[in-house]
Amino acid sequence: MIALLKRDMALAVRAGGGFGLGLAFFLIVVTLVPFGIGPESDLLSRVAAGVLWIGALLACLLSLDRIFALDWEDGTLDLLATSPLPLEGAVTVKALAHWLTTALPLVLVSPALGLLLNLPAGGYLWVPVSLALGTPALSVIGTFGAALTVGLKRGGLLLSLLVLPLYVPTLIFGAEVARRGVDGLELQAPLLMLAGISFGTLALLPFASAAVLRVNLR
């Protein structure tokens, strides 16, 4: 499993791996927002936390179809399915690799992008914290969507349509944590819900992803 994680990380940072694509997309979305809604700093600071969350969510979505598509095309997925690695484990490792290469950079860069949106002081802690807690759910749910659409031509758009509605609870509670953090309000309830969503999906969805992969490999 560690070998698979190391291989996926190595592939992501080599040419054509798409590392940094999500990061650049996040940066562009966040810089476009002030152009779109105007430069009033009051308005910007009110929407900053939500914009950062939506930007991070869309950036996560961008690289989902690569999770299985490339391994499917070159036959790696067939070989992995016949290897001693349990497919559930392989799926979890792939979700982890996606999180490490796509979501974690977004978490780390979010305070810097908060500056561009005039994020209020409380947000510099709670936006990254809520993203760090919520993005694992985005990766795991996305891996499930990628497993569902593997092998389909032009599966990327279908993948987005399938996955975005499933992202709604994570977005609601993640953005709520960030917003309450900004306003300095009590945030234990949404924080626990967000953690619950992340751990729940992490515990259950790999089994579903492995099952649909097996069906898709037939």
């Binding site: 291989r7 070159d74 067939d78």
Partner: peptide, 22 residues
């Protein structure tokens, strides 16, 4: 099978080592 399950951006050694570890 028909496809070899090779990664173009990994070296011959890395490809084989990966499968050996798996």
């Amino acid at each position: 099978g028909h496809s070899d399950g090779l990664k173009a951006m990994l070296s011959v050694r890395e490809n084989l080592t990966f499968w050996a570890q798996v």
